[in-house]
Design a protein around this nucleic acid. Structure first.
Length: 336
DNA sequence: AATTCATACAACCGCCCATTT
DNA sequence: TAAATGGGCGGTTGTATGAAT
């Protein structure tokens, strides 16, 4: 157990990869796939261990990687996900397509952490910094972090359903006030059957003040568009949700059923950014987070009122969106 | 121009877990 | 059943680069 056998072998190169090595690895994997990573170095003619090859491929050579700086939207998403998941970088990365866990981890450690502290937010608890007695982020703290419950780990599950977002809600509180059922936050975010890998693009801020779905799905054919909706549509008796998901059941063959994570901003608008081959989403809160943070996740379908056929015909969306379902439920954080 | 310092990011290390032998 | 192996993850370190002195 412990060290991998490959790591014991001598004469293996370490350190930065040369362009020649990159080329060998890239050519081999694009041609044959990686298969068993431990056999890749030999087959590709590299003096590296399999783990090193794997890492190089995942973090650098993979063709679907997104290059360039993180957008503000992505940063906000990372902050929200970190509040929910802690240092589970790989799970966080699943919500940022094209970004690697390593990249996100680096961004967090080199940039986001400082920004949060400057704003008086503790990057570990995501609470006010003063509560932690001006703690400094040290190695010991990062170890300790595993022991500190994240925002989710004291939550009480509450679900509710409604036949219409405008209509009466049939509220079912599963375990009111009790914390025994505190669910694993990762379930709600990464193991949800509604979550799928998506492409993330920075959204145009000008979208966020648009109150109508059909205003914002314009540009569908332009391979990039945003969808916004009034916050009142999803506002519930439980307070302000911080995350929700949408299911689209489209008649448009270009657009099969999709499930999107939708961010909810403090202004009450969720934004989904769309790109040609995939779905992109962002998920963050603008402005001040309310102290009683609620976690929001899809469980039961809710049919959103759609614009009239006439309205639909005005847009370039064609047969898209015969129906859009909003599915939601909510996990209400149990506040101490 | 040389040196120091800060920062970002690539890569490694050690561990865990699941699977195979 | 235990050991070996492989894949994966999070923490940490090393290195390149640019800014400041």
């Amino acid at each position: 157990m412990g060290r991998h056998s490959c790591c014991h072998k001598q004469k293996l190169r370490k350190g930065l990869w040369s362009p020649e090595e990159d080329e060998k690895l890239f050519n081999h994997i694009t041609k044959y796939g990686h298969g068993c990573w431990s056999s890749v170095p030999k087959l590709a003619g590299l003096q590296r261990c399999g783990k090193s090859c794997r890492l190089r491929w995942i973090n650098y050579l993979r063709p679907d990687l997104k290059r360039g700086a993180f957008s503000q939207q992505e940063e906000n998403l990372i902050i929200d996900l970190h509040a929910a998941l802690g240092n589970r970088w790989s799970q966080i990365a699943t919500h940022l397509p094209g970004r690697t866990d390593n990249e996100i981890k680096n961004l967090w450690n080199s940039c986001i952490k400082k920004k949060l502290m400057q704003r008086g937010i503790d990057p570990i608890t995501h609470g006010p910094l003063s509560e932690v007695e001006s703690s400094t982020i040290t190695t010991a703290d990062t170890q300790k972090q595993k022991m500190i419950p994240t925002a989710h780990e004291n939550i009480t599950a509450v679900t509710y359903s409604t036949s219409s977002i405008y209509g009466n809600s049939s509220i079912q509180q599963l375990n009111s006030g009790a914390s025994e059922m505190a669910p694993d936050p990762s379930f709600f975010i990464t193991k949800s059957p509604f979550t799928k890998p998506t492409k993330v693009r920075p959204s145009d801020d000008s979208h966020t003040d648009q109150p109508s779905i059909f205003d914002t799905v314009r540009g569908w054919d332009a391979l990039e568009s945003s969808i916004s909706m009034p916050f009142s549509w999803i506002l519930s008796d439980f307070g302000r949700p911080s995350q929700m998901q949408l299911q689209f059941e489209g008649g448009d063959p270009r657009w099969p059923s999709e499930y999107l994570d939708v961010p909810l901003s403090a202004e009450g608008l969720g934004t989904v950014t769309e790109s040609g081959m995939g779905t992109s989403s962002s998920m963050h809160l603008h402005g001040d987070a309310e102290p009683e943070t609620c976690w929001f996740q899809s469980q039961r379908p809710v049919v959103l009122p759609l614009a009239s056929d006439q309205q639909q015909q005005q847009g370039p969306i064609g047969s898209f969106s015969q129906r859009m379902q909003l599915q939601h439920s909510m996990i209400q954080e149990k506040m101490p």
